[in-house]
Design a protein around this nucleic acid. Structure first.
Lengths: 186, 186
DNA sequence: CCTAAACTGTCACCCCATGACACAAATATC
DNA sequence: GATATTTGTGTCATGGGGTGACAGTTTAGG
């Protein structure tokens, strides 16, 4: 009964309840009861109810940033951003059912969708220096353009993931992302 | 003492408190006390605390959609999207101080920034049919590409507004938006 | 002036979240 | 193996956001 395993157990139970009864309709007490713990203990594993569905953006943000930073210096910025999301495919492939469930819950709950968009803000802030470094011009101009490009890329990611969910995972996320990234440059 | 005027009064007081004490640090009771109403009455004017800062996206979304729909049929889609945001400048010019205050509060509160991004989802859904109608290809493809273009445009809008705030309103929103919209096509 | 609608405060309640505390279990140390 | 320490847990109390119900008051309209 390691800590991580208990956490996973809570998450599994909770996601199931969220999926079938709705996120807002499922209370912490419901989850705690289903797992057999006190509602107080729930918060000892998750800082908030939403964190069962949305994981901390920072760790993955670091991976994305480092991936972008590791791309060749002469690679076009837009391609760098596309490649930065490569590590993401892996996670969507590991457990498709779970991934789709999470997406389903997320897209049917306003507050969760909003929290998910917060990830963009975090990632954009982390990516900014890496992307700005690959642009030319004044510091101001580079910062501004980096923000635009990053947020556009994140928009592509979001739409691609939404489409992936809409198709029930039948099309690869990588394929959808490739398609999405071609569109702004047309 | 019309309903709208009371609402404005509450909003003004609340925004002032949010700005100087922080959004999370300011409680509903604080606002109610400052205005001289009961905390229950606050919710009779605003469905939630956040709604003091973020207004309902739908009314303005309709304006944006209709503006886009009214553009000439042969205009490039990206230009249509740029023009769709024209009605927004007006609002940022009417009361710059208030606009900047709202932006300041919003950008210093994670939950508010996230909720603000949710506006994108609403607007994107409203704009989708208008934009998709201007694209060619299969229904699926048009929908997908419309989403990407719309979300990219909204990303430009967001970054432009953030920059406007950062510069304390010294640069026109229209100018920043023009700059922003040039970047993805480069 | 009187009635009906709109508005208000108070009270009760639910849910999420956090801090404090006592207690049991697991682990470490001798 | 006995003891001490760390870790996890349940319970309780508190605070903030949000909602429904109800009674009293103000306002508008005839």
């Amino acid at each position: 009964m390691t800590r991580a395993s208990v956490r996973d157990q809570i998450a599994d139970r909770a996601l199931l309840l969220f999926d079938q009864n709705g996120f807002d309709e499922t209370t912490i007490d419901d989850i705690a009861l289903a797992v057999g713990i006190s509602s107080r203990s729930f918060f000892r594993y998750f800082p908030a109810k939403e964190d069962v569905v949305l994981n901390d953006p920072t760790p993955f943000g670091e991976i994305v940033r480092d991936t972008a930073a590791a791309r060749p210096a002469n690679e076009p910025v837009w391609a760098v951003l596309r490649r930065a999301f490569d590590p993401l495919h892996a996670t969507t492939v590991v457990d498709v059912t779970r991934g789709l469930r999470i997406m389903r819950i997320m897209m049917s709950t306003a507050s969760l969708r909003a929290r998910n968009l917060e990830k963009h803000i975090t990632w954009a802030a982390m990516l900014e220096p890496v992307i700005a470094a690959r642009l030319s011009g004044s510091d101001e101009s580079r910062r501004f353009r980096a923000q635009i490009l990053i947020h556009s890329a994140l928009a592509c990611l979001d739409v691609a993931l939404a489409e992936w969910t809409r198709r029930d995972g039948s099309t690869d996320v990588a394929t959808l992302l490739d398609e999405a990234f071609e569109i702004p440059n047309s």
